[in-house]
Design a protein around this nucleic acid. Structure first.
Length: 214
DNA sequence: CGGTGGATCTGA
DNA sequence: CAGATCCACCGG
């Protein structure tokens, strides 16, 4: 509900602020339980070689360079629509990738979107929006939704933040998933104990689930 | 583990 | 323009 919370502060602050918030598209709502923060080019405040925006603005990533609170949608590996929330001041590239959520409304719609997929696709409700590709499919976003103003109630895609951010004790953090550059940056955040967190990438060696306190 | 899949970017 | 790349997922 408060864009200012996303335009002030570091991308990781925005990431923690978004956790626990709710994204709504039509009848479907998802409570966000896992996110990753991304920065921008070398000459910006948050140089991030893992970010789409690292090599400067392009037609695809230009939303990351715009004002906070807009939806950045991109197609990953030719089949998965992934959702990000732009953050930071206008003109500065940063975004938060929405990695996983819990379906809190529109279960029937989400289930129908999952129909016809392989028998191994998540049957358990907790897996319906686990992973950025699954999250995008559950919500039914399209590339055409790129740039949507998430805090405008009349938008097709909206984001409702918690009135107050979750306490740090409720969160955990660790390295980002699927990122080969800057793997040491602990810019992945999730809500402790949520069954929808995409834990599959955790190293089997890591006995304590994947990360540290946030 | 490998195949799939398509937009996007880079460098001829 | 072709080729490489890409913030995944599923089935084996």
């Amino acid at each position: 509900m408060n864009v200012a919370d996303l335009e002030i502060g570091e991308p990781d602050d925005a990431a923690r602020r978004i956790l626990g918030g709710t994204v709504t598209v039509g009848d479907v709502s998802v409570r966000i339980v896992e996110v990753e923060a991304y920065g921008g080019p070398l000459d910006g405040p948050w140089p991030d070689p893992a970010a789409h925006s690292f090599r400067g603005p392009t037609p695809r990533n230009v939303v990351m360079f715009g004002p906070a609170g807009r939806l950045y949608v991109y197609l990953s590996y030719g089949m998965h629509l992934c959702m990000n929330v732009s953050c930071g001041p206008d003109g500065t590239a940063a975004a938060v990738l929405l990695r996983a959520g819990e379906v809190v409304a529109g279960h029937d719609v989400v289930e129908s979107r999952r129909a016809g997929r392989g028998p191994r696709s998540p049957r358990v409700e907790a897996g319906w929006a686990r992973g950025p590709g699954n999250l995008g499919r559950a919500l039914g976003v399209a590339l055409a939704d790129n740039g949507t103003e998430l805090f405008d109630a009349s938008s097709a895609v909206t984001l409702q933040l918690l009135d107050r951010p979750l306490p740090g004790t409720a969160l955990a953090s660790g390295p980002r998933v699927g990122v080969s550059l800057a793997p040491d940056r602990p810019w992945r955040f999730w809500i402790r104990g949520s069954s929808a967190v995409s834990s599959y990438k955790r190293s089997p060696r890591a006995d304590a689930p994947g990360g540290s306190e946030a």
